[in-house]
């Protein structure tokens, strides 16, 4: 007779402890998934984005995003080394995910001590200080470059 009462109680106690253990094993698995997820996020793109925020030495030029329009850009400022390409294509330095922007839209290249802006025959054109860019133009401190709805400021 006692076994008939004891057994269900025993099963109940074991199940209750296993329930708590299962909850914590669940938490362990979830945190493990989050951990591997955090490692994945440290991809080159995000590292580059983080680097973009840092103060650059004064000799490198930068493009500062003045008006991001509705487009999510990787960063608020981009440093220009030897050259910088802008466009919708994934291989560009600044990827602008907007139908208004051409696949390879524009590029900036360094020649001696000057930076030159070129429009790569884009469909919707590039504007420098509200003027259409038709030929290679050299950039000066404070120039505003407009591509689609996005405005960049050139700084060096």
């Amino acid at each position: 007779m006692p076994i008939k009462i004891l057994l269900p109680t025993l099963i109940s106690i074991i199940l209750q402890y296993s329930m708590v253990v299962l909850i914590y094993y669940f938490l362990f698995r979830v945190i493990k998934m989050i951990h591997s997820d955090l490692k994945q996020v440290r991809s080159p793109a995000s590292v580059q984005a983080v680097a973009g925020w840092e103060r650059q030495p004064s000799e490198t030029a930068r493009l500062i995003v003045i008006d991001p329009g509705n487009i999510a850009l990787q960063s608020a400022s981009f440093s220009i080394h030897e050259s910088l390409t802008i466009g919708r294509g994934k291989s560009n330095d600044i990827v602008m995910d907007d139908a208004f922007v051409s696949h390879d839209h524009a590029c900036i290249t360094k020649y001696k001590h000057d930076y030159w802006l070129t429009d790569l025959q884009s469909t919707n054109k590039t504007y420098l200080n509200e003027k259409l860019v038709t030929d290679e133009v050299s950039l000066h401190e404070g120039d505003l470059i407009k591509i689609g709805a996005v405005t960049f400021k050139f700084e060096r």
């Binding site: 008939k4 009462i5 269900p8 109680t9 099963i11 109940s12 106690i13 199940l15 209750q16 296993s18 329930m19 299962l22 909850i23 094993y25 669940f26 698995r29 979830v30 998934m33």
Partner: peptide
Amino acid sequence: ILLLGSLVALAGIIAVNMTAA
């Protein structure tokens, strides 16, 4: 982890059942 959640539900329900035998 969905399975773990389901097992918790089953274990708990059966444990409560068992105390009433």
